Simulated scan of single mutants.
Amino acid sequence: MLGVIRQALTAQSPLIVDGAMASELEHRGVDTANALWSATALIDSPQLVRDVHEAYFQAGANIAITDTYQANIPAFEKAGLTTGEAEHLIGTAVSVALDAREHYRHHLANAGNGLSDDSFLDDARPLLVAGSVGPYGAFLADGSEYTGSYHLSHTAYQDFHRRRMQILSDSGIDLFAFETMPNIGEVQALIDLLSAEFPDREAWVSFSLGDSGHLCDGTALETAAAIADACPQISAIGVNCVQPELVTAAIGHIAAVTAKPIIVYPNNGDVYHPDTKTWTRCAGALSLSNMAPRWVEAGAMLIGGCCRTSPADIYHLAKAVHQ
């Protein structure tokens, strides 16, 4: 039986992943410069999260990633919420993504084929919701997802991620997104947790890189990809929130050790400053829409954007690979 990623790829290939959540929330008036980052909006403005998801579906995304990268129970508790409130907010992140998908489908059904001249916006295209499982480094809120310089025991990693994954699964996601993973010990713990406690779920794994051939903790990308490849429930392997210029070479390293679909969704090239939670714009960054056809040619089958990318970026990227 085909998994959800393989099944979706039979309907449309490449699949388009959505773009940034935090910067789009900022455009809508949400202050994300805090330890909860984009998850802040789940507390007071969940409707805005839904609006961002729908904007990406309208732009051509096949996959919405839930606003749970930074939304873990310890982070919400640290911000003063109860465990019950934290669990509810994680469920809310899934429900608003599902609502955005259904609202978009309803809009398509009412609009008929006259909604757009772009063939990739066909109303029959697959639409998935992936439950974001960000690394322990994201909880630290100090940029550790870009260094991988933290270490927990195998069991401690699993204890950190378990309840969030349970809520995501119970709330109706199509698959997990183990994303921005900089640390191979954490990846192995997540894969083992997936196999042992979520045997009917699949996930993609996307790594955070120090350079085009290594995770942030120094692990060779080919080694990490081979570990992910060995788990039948990992349905796609790739990189995210990396500089666009690293992607083509990274695809080559991953393709050397797996026949599974490769997923890439880099940031827009801007530089993040974790101490101030601000960004420095990179004026000479590569255009995702210009690079995306090269990534498809190199072997990527799921392509999108991460930090600082927009619905407009996703629309132009989708148009570039489907025209």
Rank of each mutant, 00 (worst) to 15 (best):
E186T: 10
G304D: 02
G284M: 10
A230Y: 06
L288Q: 07
D142K: 12
D18T: 09
D51T: 12
E197N: 14
C241E: 13
N240F: 06
H88G: 06
S38T: 14
L15S: 04
I73G: 01
E24I: 03
D174S: 06
L128G: 05
A236N: 00
L209N: 14
T219R: 12
L152Y: 05
C306N: 08
S45W: 08
T278I: 02
L209F: 12
T258R: 05
G148L: 10
L221F: 11
G210H: 11
L15E: 00
G218C: 04
C306P: 05
T248D: 13
M21A: 07
S149N: 15
C306H: 08
E87S: 12
T66R: 08
D217I: 12
A249Y: 09
A86W: 00
D118S: 12
F139K: 00
N268E: 03
Q323T: 13
M301K: 15
D200F: 07
G131W: 00
L288D: 03
K260Q: 09
V30K: 00
Y146F: 15
H154R: 14
C306V: 09
P126K: 01
A298D: 11
T92E: 15
D99P: 05
T82P: 02
C307L: 08
A75F: 00
T155A: 12
V49E: 09
H53S: 09
D118K: 15
T276K: 04
I173V: 15
D270V: 02
D192L: 08
M301E: 14
A33W: 00
V296G: 07
D122A: 15
I303A: 03
R308F: 04
A177I: 01
G131K: 02
L81S: 06
R50M: 13
P46R: 11
A61V: 03
S310D: 05
V242L: 10
G305P: 02
G172P: 11
P266L: 11
I43R: 14
H53T: 03
D18H: 07
L286M: 14
N268S: 15
L246G: 10
L108K: 13
Q47D: 15
H103V: 06
V296A: 08
L286A: 13
N72Y: 01
F160Q: 01
I303K: 01
E179C: 02
Q158G: 01
P266Q: 10
G60I: 00
L288M: 05
N113V: 10
G305T: 05
F207D: 11
F178C: 05
E85T: 06
L108C: 13
M1N: 08
L209R: 14
A20V: 06
F198V: 02
T40S: 10
S153E: 07
C231K: 05
E186S: 06
F139I: 04
G284E: 14
Q7I: 00
G80D: 02
Y315Q: 12
G134M: 02
T92M: 14
P244T: 07
V257I: 08
T32K: 01
A318W: 01
D67E: 14
A256R: 12
M291W: 04
C241M: 09
E245Y: 12
A224Y: 09
Q12M: 13
S235N: 03
P261E: 01
V49P: 10
S95V: 09
A111H: 05
R101C: 01
F160V: 07
H88C: 04
A79D: 07
P293Q: 04
A39N: 06
I234R: 04
Y104H: 11
A109L: 13
T68I: 02
F57Y: 14
V242A: 14
H273N: 14
